[in-house]
Write a protein that binds this DNA or RNA. Structure first.
Lengths: 362, 362
DNA sequence: TCCTGAAATGTTATCGATAACATCACTATA
DNA sequence: TATAGTGATGTTATCGATAACATTTCAGGA
C-alpha cells in the first residue's frame, strides 16, 4: 500500500477524483454500498484505503443536526461514585455509536452554566447531569425549551420534567441510622453535605425520620452541614470532638464517602478508636478500599447502574421506538435501592472476626 | 424577557432577521464587537437574548478545521490512577476552552482502533492516550501521518515520536523491591500485568534488577504475568499459595493497584496474615483507601500531574508559541518520579502503631 | 425497432458561520 | 467643491458530506 503525504485533510472529493467518480458515488459507497456497481465500489474502496480517508463527521452532523454526542456533567469524576457512573454511561454510549464528553462542575452552578453553554454550542444530542442544586433549574428549563433531552442522575430537581435515576436517599439514610440505633447508639451525629444538594437534604430527612421514629430528639449541635469533600469532613469531625464529653456523639453518619474519609482521618489523628469510641458509617461505598480492607460500614449504591440506565433512557429519547404513540414518552423516574453493607466501623461485628462482609436485605 | 418557541434550532439568520441586519453583522457582534456601531450592537445583542441564540460550533469548526476537542483514551477510568489523570486533563482543557471526549479501551488494541477511527472522524484536535501496548503502534503512526498531535500517557511505545509523560517504572519497581529486600525479604513474588503493556515490562525489569543487585536469583515460579485486573491478582495469589511451603513467597510485589487488591482479598480469604505471613506492596496508590486506613505500602505516582502535563503539552502543540523557530518542537519526554509510601502491609512498621505514614525520599 | 423503466451515476442546493471582498455613507483634506 | 479615505454594513463563496433531483445507460417487452 502506497503512502500519501496528507498535509491537508483528505476529503470525499479527493477520493472521488482518485477513483474517477463523483463525490456522490463515494458517499454511496460509504452509506448504501448496494446501490453502487461492484466494480465501481471496489475502485472507490481502494481509493479510500490508499488515501486513508476518514469522512468528516462534522459535515454530516451539520447537515443532519445530530452529533451522536452525549455529555456527562458531574461534580467530580474523582469521586468513585461518579467514576463508576461515567464508566456505565460510556459503555452504553460506546455500544450505540455515541461519544461522551465529560465535565466537572465542582458543585458550582456557575461552572455548570458555562459548560452547558459550550455543550449547546457543540450541539450535543443529550445530557446526563448530576446537578449542583436547585440553582441549576434555570439551565435545565433552558434545555427543555430548546428541546435537548437530558437525564438527571443521582439528584432530582423539583418541578423539572425529565427522566431521573436516583437512589433512595431518604430510605437509605433512615435504614443506616436505624442500623446504628439498633446497635444501641443514641447520640448519632450527621456530617452532611450542602443542603442545597438534593441528596444531602434527603439524607438528612432520612436521618431525622429514623431518630424521631425511635423517640430520639435530634440535636442541633450534632448536625453539621458542609460540602461533599474530605476537608469538610475533617472540619466537622474536629467540631464534634470539641463538644463537651456528655454531648459528644458516639456515632457519626457521614452523608457521603469523601466526608467519611475526612471524619475517619481526623478521628484517627485524635487517637479516637473506631468503632470502640465512636462508630462511623456513611453513604456510598469505596469499592477498592472495601476490597482492601472491609472496614467501613456503608449504604452502597449501584453507581454504574445509575450510568447505564441513565444513558439508556437518554438514547431512547433520542431514537424513540417506532411503536410509540407519537407523543413524547412521559418522564421516567427510577429509584435504585441502596444496599446496607455492614462491616466493622460501626461495631456490629466486634465479636466476629475474619468474616465476610454481611449484606442485609434492603 | 419574552419566551420564543424554538422547535428548530435558532440560527444566526434568525437573529439577523429579528435585528434587521445581515448575518455577517451578527457574526461581528459575536467575534469583533468593536467593529459594529453601538446602536446596532445593542439591537443584535437583544435579539440574541430574546431568541436564546447559541452559535453552532459545528459550522465554525467545519470552516476552520479546528474543533477545540481533545480525546482521552485509557484502559479504564475506573482505575483511580486513570481517574486522576482524567481529572487533570479535564481541568487544563476546560481552562483553555477545550472539551474532552473520553473512552475506555479495556487494554484492547482493537477497541482502541475503533475509537480512534471515530475520533478522527470527529476531527479531534489532539489525543491523550495510554496505549494498550506495542500493538497500538500502527494506529499511532497513522496519527503522525495525518498530523494529529498526541501525547502518550503512562506508557511509551518504542520508536513512536511524540510527547510522553511517564513514570519511572524501572526505578520505582527497583526501589520498591529493594525496600522489601531491606526488610529481610528474599522470596519476593512479582504479580504482573500483561508483558505487552510497557509499564508491566518496566516494572518487571526493575524488580529483576533489584534482585540481581542483591544476589538473589529470580525464580520463574514467583513471577506471574496476567493483566491489570483484580481477578488476575486473585488468580496469581492462589497460584502462589499453592506452591510448596519452602518455595512459597514471603512477600508479593503487585505491579498495580488492582492486582494488589485481588492479591490481598485472596490472602485474607485464605487466612494469610499481612504482613506477618506474607508482605504485600504495589505500584500506584489508592488514595481513598489509604486515607481510610494507611495499610498498603505503595510506590505512588502523581497521577493528576500526568494528566495536567500531558494536556499542557498537547495544547502547546496545537498552538505553538509564536517565538518558536517555525520547525515543530522536538518530542518531549517527562519522567515523573514515583514516591515510596511506607505503610504497614510490608512489615516495616510492625513496631510502630498509630503513626502517620512515612514518606521516604525517592 | 421503438419505448419504458430500473439501475448507475452525476449535479445542485443545503446545513450555519464566517473570510474575503464589495458597497455605501459620510468626513476630512487639498 | 471634488475626492480620498474610513467606518459600517452587506454579498458571495466556502468548509465537507449528502438529500433531492437529474441524467445516462441499457435490458426487456410491445
Amino acid at each position: 500500500m502506497q503512502m500519501e503525504e496528507s498535509p491537508a485533510a483528505v476529503t470525499i472529493q479527493d477520493v472521488a477524483a482518485r477513483a474517477g467518480v463523483s463525490a456522490m458515488t463515494v458517499s454511496r459507497v460509504l452509506n448504501q454500498p448496494a446501490r453502487v456497481a461492484p466494480a465501481t465500489r471496489q475502485r472507490v474502496e481502494q481509493a479510500i484505503r490508499e488515501l486513508g480517508f476518514v469522512p468528516n463527521a462534522l459535515a454530516r452532523q451539520l447537515l443532519h443536526g445530530r452529533t451522536h454526542t452525549l455529555a456527562l456533567l458531574v461534580s467530580d469524576i474523582g469521586n468513585p461514585f461518579f467514576t463508576q457512573i461515567a464508566r456505565g454511561v460510556e459503555d452504553v454510549a460506546q455500544r450505540n455509536g455515541y461519544t461522551v464528553i465529560f465535565g466537572n462542575s465542582d458543585e458550582s452552578v456557575e461552572k455548570e452554566r458555562q459548560y452547558l453553554h459550550a455543550l449547546l454550542g457543540r450541539r450535543i444530542d443529550g445530557l446526563l447531569i448530576a446537578p449542583a442544586g436547585n440553582g441549576s433549574r434555570p439551565m435545565l428549563d433552558l434545555l427543555i425549551q430548546r428541546g435537548t433531552p437530558f437525564v438527571l442522575l443521582d439528584r432530582a430537581i423539583d418541578g423539572v420534567q425529565a427522566d431521573v435515576v436516583i437512589g433512595d436517599n431518604v430510605g437509605g439514610a433512615r435504614k443506616l441510622t436505624e442500623h446504628l440505633i439498633g446497635l444501641g447508639q443514641r447520640r448519632i451525629a450527621l456530617v452532611n453535605g450542602d443542603p442545597e444538594v438534593p441528596t444531602a437534604r434527603d439524607r438528612r430527612r432520612g436521618y431525622l425520620d429514623a431518630l424521631r421514629e425511635h423517640g430520639i430528639e435530634p440535636r442541633a449541635e450534632l448536625i453539621i452541614d458542609g460540602v461533599y469533600r474530605r476537608d469538610s469532613g475533617e472540619r466537622a469531625a474536629r467540631q464534634l470532638l470539641a463538644l463537651p464529653p456528655d454531648s459528644r456523639p458516639t456515632a457519626i453518619f457521614a452523608a457521603n464517602n469523601f466526608l467519611a474519609v475526612g471524619v475517619i482521618e481526623t478521628l484517627r489523628a485524635a487517637q479516637v478508636s473506631i468503632p470502640r469510641d465512636i462508630a462511623v458509617a456513611c453513604f456510598d461505598d469505596i469499592e477498592m478500599a472495601a476490597a482492601l480492607d472491609p472496614f467501613l460500614t456503608v449504604m452502597a449504591q449501584p453507581a454504574r447502574t445509575f450510568g447505564t440506565i441513565g444513558a439508556q433512557f437518554l438514547l431512547e429519547r433520542l431514537d424513540p421506538s417506532p411503536n410509540a404513540s407519537g407523543r413524547p414518552a412521559p418522564p421516567r423516574r427510577v429509584v435504585l435501592p441502596p444496599e446496607l453493607i455492614v462491616r466493622v466501623s460501626c461495631g456490629a461485628q466486634l465479636a466476629i472476626s475474619n468474616s465476610q462482609p454481611v449484606t442485609l436485605n434492603s
